[in-house]
């Protein structure tokens, strides 16, 4: 046993670049499967309330605003969200999920009410059920644009989602 067998490593490290990232100026890439905060594609939601039922943090609230217009309101309380993505797993819409996770990680705010997201939308017509797969998240899930080919399924005069999406309540 000789003294200082840790020394060579220490001296070598003196001439190396720091291992850390200069954070606020330089940011690391998150992996493609990163679970950020959930958001809704209002034109795809069939208001089945599966996400509301399964959310462990009770962060999702769905309310029926008008029965004849089939108008619904979803509030996602991102201050309560635990970022588990169970809502994405529970969402039954195929092939595109109405719930999805974004890739943002700098989501802190001074006021928790600013984190609330509100969507007012008309219920989408459910397509015919395509099998009863468990549908776990595919490994290469990429963020698909919200108003894709499915927008035709939304009933007439859908609420313009960009206006209602980032709204504080």
């Amino acid at each position: 046993m000789k003294l200082g067998i840790f020394l060579p490593e220490l001296i070598r490290s003196l001439f190396k670049k720091p291992n850390t990232v200069d954070y606020p100026f330089e940011k690391l890439e998150v992996p493609p499967d990163f679970r950020g905060s959930p958001f809704l594609h209002p034109d795809l939601c069939i208001a089945c309330r599966a996400c509301e039922r399964d959310c462990p943090a009770e962060a999702i609230e769905i309310e029926e605003l008008s029965k004849e217009e089939k108008k619904f309101q979803m509030v996602i309380h991102n201050d309560r969200c635990i970022h588990c993505a169970q809502c994405v797993d529970s969402c039954p819409t195929t092939p595109l999920k109405a719930m999805e996770m974004d890739h943002l990680f700098e989501i802190a705010d001074f006021d928790r009410h600013n984190l609330k997201m509100q969507y007012v939308y008309n219920r989408a017509v459910p397509k015919k059920p395509a099998g009863s797969a468990v549908a776990p998240m595919s490994p290469n899930r990429s963020a698909k644009p919200s108003d894709g080919s499915e927008s035709a399924t939304a009933p007439a005069a859908p609420k313009p989602d960009p206006a209602s999406k980032p709204g504080q309540s």
Partner: peptide
């Protein structure tokens, strides 16, 4: 983080298997 999507709370388990493939 690459496998599960987060560094600490992996949330990879579900009843009857796992949620993400490799």
């Amino acid at each position: 983080e690459m496998i599960s999507g987060n560094r600490v709370h992996y949330a990879i388990n579900t009843l009857g298997g796992v949620r993400r493939d490799l």
